[in-house]
Design a protein around this nucleic acid. Structure first.
Lengths: 342, 342
DNA sequence: TTTCAACACTCAAACGTTTGCGCAAAATAG
DNA sequence: CTATTTTGCGCAAACGTTTGAGTGTTGAAA
């Protein structure tokens, strides 16, 4: 076993001082040609690599971005990570991922941990519990400490920082308008409870577009899922009890549960009932019928978030604060769970 | 903006030395009751948290585990991460995730980066390109430096380290035996090329179980997908050309492509053709028909990997080297893509 | 009264870097 | 041949911790 080589060891071995080694490796003109070559050759031969920890301590920056997300076994979040990672790596940054498992406490813990030197900034999507508690002190804390924070997807106005969101309202409107355009009259909505901001916004889009088309809203056609684990049964019950000719679901799971329920009711998708989901995941692509869906472009969101964060990190501190909110457009991907436009 | 509090600042503020502050906070008996209380109160009030980077440098360990995986938008890998994360956190370790995107170069780069102080050890699944190149110098390197390495899923014998794998062969045998038990005679296999070890092993299970049942192997019924991006067409072609009454696919994508192809051919699943997949992902659960599948228990694998790694990290260096290979059992999950056993 | 332990604290080194400053020797200028 | 500049390198501080060794004061035992 050969432990890691350090400047000190090279210095001892070559009988020069540590600073000479350091300078030689950084091609300082202060070091003589000969010595420099000798040191560089030695370092190369023994594969010297500087210790990141020491560098981080010295430079007081880690070149690392912390991502904290509610869960990782989740298509959308992984696409975001992928996007962050790509941009971060291009700019010489590393990524460290932590999971809150939707728990407020774990979110706080993880943030504190990473804030104590491990990362230069954060890219986060808030835990469900945090949204319920409305306790945002940990965000304020890191911002206060001068660490940049970029929120994505699940964001709230109370926190002043850069944000990357999608146009949930517009996305939902696009979807519902599409359903109307393909002849739907009674459109059911399967959403989440309102403290999940995306659920609220997509619901708003649904309501707005109905209003714009002068269609009366029937509250019976709106289902708000409280308990995700029981969503399948709730949706089945909802479909059984109500007569609809289209369903707009705020995520792909709800969408396919709806399709199942519709089929079990003896109706056909899309002939009798059209269904549109949100999030363009594996499931949407592969399901039969494949799902018409509002794509969130998670990778692009991740990339934008990384850019915003790195911008902040590399900006001189005097250049004044200003927070941007980037809206990544959604797009409707037409597949086989809806009728075509004629 | 209030920058992070350090021992030095507390010391200055309270007019004691840095070491006194350090000791007081660690409840050293060397410090007088009064001073200790005062310091602890101050630290608590201003929410002092020690700087991880400085600690890492001092202790020469980071309490961080590096995970390097080929891709993150991938159900199985995310379940593994989830498992690692759970166990790691319980034991006070943090997790940092890097992606190789199946590229050899990026795998090497990431390992070098993390090896230079960022992590205490690695949990990895090898990039496809690495398996093709058969270049494992970077693994040897970190092991040589005394950093423990745990390989999972995609592993090879040439690297001496702890490993966590599933019983691919047995899993495949279970699946094919089940197909035979439910009356299948001509079982197609949809696999990957042989340098992906899981493909090879699952193929071996398929071959073995046929042999054990005295069934002659028909090479025409074995499809090895080379180009993942073209798998759908290849599978369709394969199904069209061959007459089978069951298909064993080495992952869930192949399985559902097979189902699609079968249905497009005018046959029914599972009445005419049964299909079994591998990997118990979202798709398998939600697809209609839901997929009978060999579950890999990724979370358990991740947990085992984390345990192995942390064991190594916390073992005294003198306790001799010995490498374990943990085999996580697969289980067959019966759903609706196969006939039942009666 | 001397001796010595206990107490409460400080100093300084170390982890691995980078970098401003200083200093001797060599090279150049006058 | 002296005076000055240049060259080439080392010292030491700093980043934020921990910790072994040292120090001065007190109090009690001898």
């Amino acid at each position: 076993m050969r432990p890691k080589l350090t400047l000190k060891q090279i210095a001892r071995e070559l009988d020069v001082s540590i600073s000479t080694v350091s300078r030689a490796l950084r091609d300082s003109s202060e070091i003589g040609e000969e010595t420099r070559k000798k040191i560089k050759a030695f370092a190369k031969f023994y594969n010297y690599k500087p210790n990141n920890i020491a560098l981080s301590l010295k430079n007081r920056k880690t070149k690392t971005i912390g991502i904290i997300i509610p869960e990782i076994v989740h298509y959308f979040f992984t696409t975001v990570i992928s996007g962050v990672e790509k941009v971060a790596n291009e700019k010489g940054y590393n990524v460290i991922v932590c999971l809150s498992n939707n728990s407020f406490d774990k979110e706080v813990l993880n943030m504190e941990l990473l804030a104590n030197g491990s990362t230069d900034g954060f890219i986060m999507s808030m835990a469900k519990e945090t949204l319920q508690k409305e306790d945002y002190h940990h965000f304020a804390e890191v911002i206060n400490q001068g660490m940049p924070l970029v929120l994505f997807d699940r964001v709230i106005d109370e926190i002043h920082c850069d944000k990357v969101i999608i146009d949930d309202v517009i996305g939902a409107k696009k979807a519902v308008q599409y359903l109307l355009d393909t002849g739907a009259k009674k459109i059911g909505l399967v959403s989440t409870v309102d403290y999940v901001s995306v659920g609220k916004l997509r619901t708003r889009g649904y309501l707005e577009i109905l209003r714009e088309n002068n269609i009366e809203v029937d509250q019976n056609l709106i289902l708000k899922i409280e308990d995700m684990d029981n969503s399948e049964a709730e949706i089945k019950d909802f479909i059984d009890k109500n007569e609809v000719d289209a369903v707009f679901a705020v995520n792909e799971h709800f969408a396919i549960h709806a399709i199942k329920a519709i089929q079990e009711k003896g109706l056909k998708v899309p002939e009798d009932v059209s269904v549109i989901g949100f999030t363009n995941g594996e499931l949407s692509k592969r399901f039969i019928p494949s799902l018409t869906t509002v794509s969130q472009h998670g990778e692009r969101m991740g990339g934008e978030a990384a850019k915003l964060l790195i911008d902040k990190l590399e900006r001189k501190p005097d250049e004044g604060e200003s927070y941007k909110t980037v809206i990544v457009e959604t797009s409707l991907i037409e597949r086989n769970s809806t009728k075509s436009l004629i």
